[in-house]
Amino acid sequence: MTLATAPRLRIALIAPARYPIREPYAGGLEAFCHTLVRAVRALGHTVDLYAAAGSQGHVRAHELPGVSWARDPLASSDTAYPPGARAAEDAAFHRLARHLEGAGYDIVHNNSLTPVLFEYRLPLLTTLHTPALPEMQAAISAAGARAGRFTAVSASTAAEWVLPRPATVIPNGVDTAHWHPGPGGEAAVWFGRIVPEKGLHLAMDACRQAGIPLLFAGRVGDHRYFSTEIVPRMTGQAATWVGELDHPALQSLVSRCRVCLVTPRWEEPFGLVAFEAMACGTPVAAFRRGGLGELLTTAPAALAAPDDVSSLAAAVHVAAGIDRAVVRDWVERHHSLTEVARRYAELYSEVPTR
Protein backbone atom coordinates (compact mmCIF):
# COMPACT_ATOMS: atom_id res chain seq x y z
CA MET A 1 0.00 0.00 0.00
CA THR A 2 1.38 3.42 -0.97
CA LEU A 3 0.92 6.62 1.00
CA ALA A 4 -1.43 7.81 -1.74
CA THR A 5 -3.78 4.85 -1.20
CA ALA A 6 -3.39 4.46 2.58
CA PRO A 7 -6.54 5.22 4.62
CA ARG A 8 -6.72 8.61 6.32
CA LEU A 9 -6.73 8.13 10.08
CA ARG A 10 -7.98 10.04 13.12
CA ILE A 11 -5.12 10.17 15.58
CA ALA A 12 -4.97 11.41 19.16
CA LEU A 13 -1.38 12.34 20.02
CA ILE A 14 -0.82 12.61 23.76
CA ALA A 15 2.13 14.74 24.82
CA PRO A 16 3.92 14.64 28.17
CA ALA A 17 1.97 16.51 30.82
CA ARG A 18 4.62 18.54 32.61
CA TYR A 19 5.26 21.42 30.18
CA PRO A 20 3.34 23.11 27.34
CA ILE A 21 3.99 22.13 23.74
CA ARG A 22 5.12 25.52 22.46
CA GLU A 23 8.33 27.40 21.75
CA PRO A 24 10.72 27.73 23.41
CA TYR A 25 10.33 24.01 24.00
CA ALA A 26 11.00 22.72 27.50
CA GLY A 27 13.00 19.82 26.05
CA GLY A 28 13.47 17.43 23.15
CA LEU A 29 10.34 15.42 23.95
CA GLU A 30 8.15 18.51 23.67
CA ALA A 31 9.84 19.48 20.40
CA PHE A 32 9.34 15.95 19.05
CA CYS A 33 5.59 16.02 19.73
CA HIS A 34 5.11 19.36 18.00
CA THR A 35 7.11 18.48 14.89
CA LEU A 36 5.57 15.00 14.56
CA VAL A 37 2.04 16.42 14.69
CA ARG A 38 2.88 18.75 11.82
CA ALA A 39 4.59 16.04 9.79
CA VAL A 40 1.80 13.47 10.16
CA ARG A 41 -0.82 16.07 9.29
CA ALA A 42 1.18 16.82 6.16
CA LEU A 43 0.63 13.18 5.14
CA GLY A 44 -3.12 13.79 5.15
CA HIS A 45 -4.11 12.39 8.55
CA THR A 46 -6.18 14.16 11.20
CA VAL A 47 -4.17 14.64 14.38
CA ASP A 48 -5.55 16.07 17.63
CA LEU A 49 -2.93 17.11 20.17
CA TYR A 50 -3.64 16.52 23.86
CA ALA A 51 -1.16 18.46 25.96
CA ALA A 52 -0.56 20.70 28.96
CA ALA A 53 -2.27 24.02 29.49
CA GLY A 54 -0.51 26.77 27.58
CA SER A 55 0.27 24.58 24.57
CA GLN A 56 -0.31 25.73 21.01
CA GLY A 57 -2.89 24.00 18.80
CA HIS A 58 -4.02 21.46 21.42
CA VAL A 59 -7.52 20.32 22.41
CA ARG A 60 -8.27 22.81 25.17
CA ALA A 61 -11.38 21.03 26.43
CA HIS A 62 -9.22 18.17 27.67
CA GLU A 63 -5.90 19.83 28.48
CA LEU A 64 -3.55 18.57 31.16
CA PRO A 65 -2.70 20.79 34.15
CA GLY A 66 1.06 21.04 33.76
CA VAL A 67 3.44 21.64 36.66
CA SER A 68 3.96 25.08 38.17
CA TRP A 69 6.69 25.98 40.67
CA ALA A 70 5.52 29.59 40.97
CA ARG A 71 5.21 29.32 44.77
CA ASP A 72 8.73 27.97 45.22
CA PRO A 73 10.79 28.53 42.04
CA LEU A 74 14.10 27.64 43.66
CA ALA A 75 12.77 24.14 44.37
CA SER A 76 11.82 23.54 40.73
CA SER A 77 12.79 20.22 39.22
CA ASP A 78 12.02 18.32 36.02
CA THR A 79 11.35 15.12 37.96
CA ALA A 80 9.62 16.16 41.22
CA TYR A 81 6.19 17.69 41.80
CA PRO A 82 5.02 20.54 44.03
CA PRO A 83 2.37 19.57 46.61
CA GLY A 84 -0.82 18.28 44.99
CA ALA A 85 0.44 18.45 41.41
CA ARG A 86 0.91 14.71 40.89
CA ALA A 87 -2.64 13.94 42.07
CA ALA A 88 -4.02 16.63 39.76
CA GLU A 89 -2.06 15.20 36.83
CA ASP A 90 -3.29 11.66 37.45
CA ALA A 91 -6.90 12.84 37.71
CA ALA A 92 -6.55 14.74 34.42
CA PHE A 93 -5.20 11.65 32.67
CA HIS A 94 -8.12 9.57 33.95
CA ARG A 95 -10.57 12.14 32.56
CA LEU A 96 -8.70 12.21 29.26
CA ALA A 97 -8.65 8.40 28.99
CA ARG A 98 -12.40 8.19 29.56
CA HIS A 99 -12.90 10.79 26.82
CA LEU A 100 -10.64 8.90 24.41
CA GLU A 101 -12.50 5.62 25.00
CA GLY A 102 -15.60 7.11 23.40
CA ALA A 103 -14.06 9.51 20.91
CA GLY A 104 -13.63 7.05 18.04
CA TYR A 105 -9.96 7.60 17.29
CA ASP A 106 -8.22 5.05 15.07
CA ILE A 107 -5.04 5.35 17.11
CA VAL A 108 -3.94 6.95 20.38
CA HIS A 109 -0.25 7.76 20.12
CA ASN A 110 0.98 8.04 23.68
CA ASN A 111 4.15 10.06 24.32
CA SER A 112 3.43 10.72 27.99
CA LEU A 113 5.10 9.20 31.02
CA THR A 114 1.92 8.31 32.89
CA PRO A 115 0.91 4.78 33.91
CA VAL A 116 -2.78 5.76 33.83
CA LEU A 117 -3.52 5.14 30.14
CA PHE A 118 -2.70 1.43 30.39
CA GLU A 119 -5.70 0.95 32.69
CA TYR A 120 -8.09 1.67 29.79
CA ARG A 121 -9.02 -0.07 26.55
CA LEU A 122 -7.52 2.22 23.93
CA PRO A 123 -5.90 1.62 20.51
CA LEU A 124 -2.55 2.54 22.01
CA LEU A 125 0.80 3.02 20.38
CA THR A 126 3.28 4.19 23.02
CA THR A 127 6.65 5.68 22.16
CA LEU A 128 9.27 5.02 24.83
CA HIS A 129 11.39 8.14 25.22
CA THR A 130 13.10 7.24 28.51
CA PRO A 131 14.72 4.34 30.31
CA ALA A 132 12.21 2.19 32.20
CA LEU A 133 10.15 4.09 34.78
CA PRO A 134 8.99 1.81 37.62
CA GLU A 135 5.33 2.94 37.78
CA MET A 136 4.91 2.88 34.01
CA GLN A 137 6.63 -0.49 33.71
CA ALA A 138 4.36 -1.96 36.37
CA ALA A 139 1.26 -0.68 34.54
CA ILE A 140 2.44 -2.15 31.23
CA SER A 141 3.14 -5.51 32.84
CA ALA A 142 -0.29 -5.54 34.48
CA ALA A 143 -2.04 -4.66 31.20
CA GLY A 144 -0.25 -7.31 29.15
CA ALA A 145 -1.41 -7.46 25.53
CA ARG A 146 -3.98 -4.74 26.27
CA ALA A 147 -1.08 -2.28 26.59
CA GLY A 148 -0.97 -2.07 22.80
CA ARG A 149 2.08 -1.61 20.64
CA PHE A 150 5.33 0.16 21.36
CA THR A 151 8.07 2.06 19.61
CA ALA A 152 11.35 3.20 21.12
CA VAL A 153 13.69 5.97 20.06
CA SER A 154 16.70 3.64 20.16
CA ALA A 155 17.51 -0.04 20.63
CA SER A 156 19.23 0.85 23.92
CA THR A 157 16.02 2.36 25.23
CA ALA A 158 13.90 -0.57 24.03
CA ALA A 159 16.17 -2.98 25.91
CA GLU A 160 15.44 -1.18 29.20
CA TRP A 161 11.76 -2.20 29.16
CA VAL A 162 9.89 -5.49 29.58
CA LEU A 163 7.09 -5.40 27.00
CA PRO A 164 4.28 -7.74 25.89
CA ARG A 165 5.78 -7.63 22.39
CA PRO A 166 9.06 -6.19 21.08
CA ALA A 167 9.16 -2.46 20.42
CA THR A 168 9.73 -1.13 16.92
CA VAL A 169 12.78 1.12 16.96
CA ILE A 170 12.12 4.46 15.25
CA PRO A 171 14.81 7.03 16.02
CA ASN A 172 13.58 10.61 16.17
CA GLY A 173 13.76 12.86 13.16
CA VAL A 174 14.91 16.40 12.48
CA ASP A 175 13.10 19.02 10.42
CA THR A 176 15.96 19.61 8.02
CA ALA A 177 14.09 22.49 6.39
CA HIS A 178 14.28 24.39 9.67
CA TRP A 179 17.63 23.17 10.99
CA HIS A 180 19.61 24.24 7.95
CA PRO A 181 23.37 24.66 7.46
CA GLY A 182 25.30 27.72 8.54
CA PRO A 183 28.85 29.02 8.23
CA GLY A 184 30.24 27.74 11.53
CA GLY A 185 32.43 29.92 13.73
CA GLU A 186 35.01 29.88 16.50
CA ALA A 187 32.94 29.09 19.62
CA ALA A 188 31.53 25.78 20.77
CA VAL A 189 27.84 25.46 21.65
CA TRP A 190 25.78 23.45 24.14
CA PHE A 191 21.98 23.61 24.27
CA GLY A 192 19.24 21.80 26.14
CA ARG A 193 17.71 21.57 29.61
CA ILE A 194 20.09 22.82 32.29
CA VAL A 195 19.77 19.94 34.73
CA PRO A 196 22.40 17.67 36.34
CA GLU A 197 21.73 14.69 34.06
CA LYS A 198 22.57 16.74 30.96
CA GLY A 199 26.09 17.45 32.24
CA LEU A 200 26.59 21.07 31.14
CA HIS A 201 29.28 21.61 33.77
CA LEU A 202 31.40 18.91 32.13
CA ALA A 203 31.01 20.60 28.75
CA MET A 204 32.21 23.84 30.35
CA ASP A 205 35.26 22.10 31.83
CA ALA A 206 36.09 20.37 28.55
CA CYS A 207 35.90 23.59 26.53
CA ARG A 208 38.10 25.38 29.03
CA GLN A 209 40.64 22.54 28.72
CA ALA A 210 40.38 22.61 24.92
CA GLY A 211 40.83 26.38 24.83
CA ILE A 212 37.54 27.04 23.02
CA PRO A 213 34.89 29.49 24.32
CA LEU A 214 31.46 27.99 24.97
CA LEU A 215 28.04 29.50 24.32
CA PHE A 216 25.17 27.67 26.01
CA ALA A 217 21.40 28.04 25.75
CA GLY A 218 18.54 26.44 27.60
CA ARG A 219 15.92 26.47 30.30
CA VAL A 220 17.11 26.21 33.89
CA GLY A 221 15.37 23.06 35.08
CA ASP A 222 17.26 22.80 38.37
CA HIS A 223 18.07 26.11 40.06
CA ARG A 224 20.29 24.54 42.70
CA TYR A 225 22.45 22.89 40.04
CA PHE A 226 22.62 26.14 38.08
CA SER A 227 23.76 28.20 41.07
CA THR A 228 26.28 25.70 42.44
CA GLU A 229 27.79 24.12 39.31
CA ILE A 230 27.15 26.49 36.38
CA VAL A 231 27.43 30.05 37.68
CA PRO A 232 30.86 29.51 39.31
CA ARG A 233 32.21 28.28 35.96
CA MET A 234 31.01 31.39 34.10
CA THR A 235 34.24 33.30 34.59
CA GLY A 236 35.73 35.67 32.05
CA GLN A 237 34.68 34.82 28.49
CA ALA A 238 35.14 31.05 28.89
CA ALA A 239 31.38 30.29 28.97
CA THR A 240 28.39 32.51 28.26
CA TRP A 241 24.72 31.74 28.86
CA VAL A 242 22.55 33.24 26.10
CA GLY A 243 19.25 32.31 27.77
CA GLU A 244 16.32 30.19 26.63
CA LEU A 245 15.84 30.51 22.86
CA ASP A 246 13.11 29.53 20.43
CA HIS A 247 13.98 27.29 17.46
CA PRO A 248 14.80 30.06 14.94
CA ALA A 249 17.21 31.69 17.38
CA LEU A 250 18.71 28.32 18.30
CA GLN A 251 19.23 27.42 14.65
CA SER A 252 21.00 30.71 14.06
CA LEU A 253 23.22 30.21 17.11
CA VAL A 254 24.11 26.56 16.46
CA SER A 255 24.81 27.05 12.76
CA ARG A 256 27.34 29.76 13.61
CA CYS A 257 29.35 27.60 16.00
CA ARG A 258 32.38 25.41 15.43
CA VAL A 259 31.30 22.32 17.34
CA CYS A 260 28.40 21.20 19.55
CA LEU A 261 28.90 19.34 22.83
CA VAL A 262 26.34 16.78 24.03
CA THR A 263 27.12 15.54 27.53
CA PRO A 264 24.51 13.20 29.04
CA ARG A 265 25.23 11.77 32.48
CA TRP A 266 22.48 9.17 32.12
CA GLU A 267 21.69 6.56 29.50
CA GLU A 268 20.45 9.16 27.00
CA PRO A 269 17.62 7.54 25.01
CA PHE A 270 18.19 9.60 21.87
CA GLY A 271 19.71 13.07 22.24
CA LEU A 272 17.76 15.20 19.74
CA VAL A 273 20.06 18.20 20.17
CA ALA A 274 22.93 16.26 18.58
CA PHE A 275 20.96 15.66 15.40
CA GLU A 276 19.62 19.22 15.29
CA ALA A 277 23.19 20.49 15.50
CA MET A 278 24.35 18.14 12.78
CA ALA A 279 21.50 19.29 10.53
CA CYS A 280 23.08 22.75 10.86
CA GLY A 281 26.37 21.25 9.68
CA THR A 282 27.86 21.68 13.16
CA PRO A 283 29.92 18.61 14.16
CA VAL A 284 29.18 16.95 17.50
CA ALA A 285 31.46 15.87 20.34
CA ALA A 286 29.43 13.66 22.68
CA PHE A 287 29.68 11.18 25.50
CA ARG A 288 29.23 7.61 24.27
CA ARG A 289 26.10 6.85 26.30
CA GLY A 290 22.83 5.00 25.74
CA GLY A 291 20.93 5.57 22.52
CA LEU A 292 23.05 8.62 21.71
CA GLY A 293 26.24 6.57 21.61
CA GLU A 294 24.45 3.80 19.72
CA LEU A 295 23.12 6.08 16.98
CA LEU A 296 26.29 8.14 16.56
CA THR A 297 28.61 5.13 16.28
CA THR A 298 28.65 5.27 12.48
CA ALA A 299 28.07 9.03 12.22
CA PRO A 300 30.62 11.72 11.33
CA ALA A 301 30.92 12.68 15.00
CA ALA A 302 33.50 12.40 17.80
CA LEU A 303 32.59 10.24 20.81
CA ALA A 304 34.22 10.49 24.23
CA ALA A 305 34.34 8.25 27.28
CA PRO A 306 31.39 9.05 29.58
CA ASP A 307 32.07 11.69 32.26
CA ASP A 308 35.71 12.02 31.13
CA VAL A 309 36.52 15.71 30.66
CA SER A 310 39.92 15.11 29.04
CA SER A 311 38.43 12.61 26.59
CA LEU A 312 35.72 15.11 25.74
CA ALA A 313 38.22 17.92 25.24
CA ALA A 314 40.10 15.73 22.77
CA ALA A 315 36.82 14.88 21.03
CA VAL A 316 36.08 18.59 20.66
CA HIS A 317 39.25 19.03 18.60
CA VAL A 318 38.45 15.95 16.49
CA ALA A 319 34.88 17.12 15.84
CA ALA A 320 36.04 20.60 14.88
CA GLY A 321 37.94 19.06 11.96
CA ILE A 322 34.97 17.17 10.46
CA ASP A 323 33.62 18.55 7.19
CA ARG A 324 30.33 20.39 7.80
CA ALA A 325 28.80 19.25 4.49
CA VAL A 326 29.43 15.60 5.39
CA VAL A 327 27.74 16.12 8.76
CA ARG A 328 24.65 17.67 7.19
CA ASP A 329 24.39 14.99 4.51
CA TRP A 330 24.46 12.19 7.10
CA VAL A 331 21.51 13.64 9.02
CA GLU A 332 19.49 14.15 5.85
CA ARG A 333 19.99 10.50 4.89
CA HIS A 334 19.39 8.95 8.31
CA HIS A 335 17.20 11.21 10.46
CA SER A 336 14.84 13.31 8.35
CA LEU A 337 11.50 14.10 9.96
CA THR A 338 9.67 13.16 6.76
CA GLU A 339 10.94 9.57 6.97
CA VAL A 340 10.07 9.31 10.67
CA ALA A 341 6.51 10.54 10.02
CA ARG A 342 6.14 8.01 7.20
CA ARG A 343 7.21 5.14 9.48
CA TYR A 344 4.78 6.20 12.20
CA ALA A 345 1.97 6.50 9.66
CA GLU A 346 2.61 2.90 8.60
CA LEU A 347 2.40 1.73 12.21
CA TYR A 348 -0.75 3.76 12.82
CA SER A 349 -2.53 1.85 10.06
CA GLU A 350 -1.59 -1.48 11.69
CA VAL A 351 -2.58 -0.81 15.30
CA PRO A 352 -6.41 -0.77 14.96
CA THR A 353 -6.37 -4.21 13.27
CA ARG A 354 -4.26 -5.89 15.93
Score class of each variant (00 low, 15 high):
T2A: 05
A4Q: 15
R10H: 09
I11N: 08
R18V: 04
R18W: 10
P20I: 02
P20A: 03
P20H: 04
P20K: 00
E23H: 11
P24N: 13
Y25E: 08
E30T: 13
E30F: 07
E30P: 08
A31E: 11
T35V: 14
T35N: 15
L43D: 05
G44H: 05
T46S: 14
D48M: 07
A53V: 13
S55W: 12
H58I: 05
H58T: 11
V59R: 12
A61Y: 00
H62T: 04
P65D: 05
A70P: 02
A75T: 02
Y81E: 11
P82M: 09
P83F: 14
G84T: 13
R86D: 13
A88W: 10
A88Q: 13
E89R: 08
A91Y: 08
L100V: 03
G102L: 04
G102P: 00
G104N: 09
G104V: 07
Y105Q: 09
D106I: 07
N111R: 06
L113A: 15
T114Q: 07
L117N: 02
Y120V: 03
L122G: 04
T130V: 13
P131W: 12
A132K: 06
P134T: 03
A138W: 07
G144K: 09
G144L: 04
F150R: 01
V153L: 06
V169W: 06
H178T: 14
W179V: 02
H180N: 09
G185P: 04
G185Q: 01
W190L: 04
F191H: 07
G192C: 03
R193S: 12
E197K: 15
G199W: 03
A206T: 07
C207P: 01
R208V: 12
R208L: 14
G218F: 02
V220Y: 02
S227V: 11
T228W: 12
E229Y: 12
P232R: 15
P232F: 15
T235V: 15
T240M: 01
G243R: 00
E244A: 08
H247V: 11
L250A: 06
V254K: 01
V259Y: 00
L261P: 01
R265I: 10
W266D: 09
E267I: 08
M278T: 05
G281A: 06
P283H: 06
V284G: 01
A286E: 09
F287P: 00
G293P: 00
T297R: 13
T297M: 12
A301N: 00
A301L: 01
A302F: 10
D307C: 05
V309G: 04
V316L: 05
V318G: 10
A319C: 09
A320H: 11
G321R: 08
G321T: 03
A325R: 11
V326T: 15
H334W: 10
L337T: 01
T338K: 09
A341D: 03
A341K: 00
R343H: 03
Y344F: 13
Y344M: 03
A345V: 05
E350K: 10
T353P: 00
T353Q: 14
R354S: 11
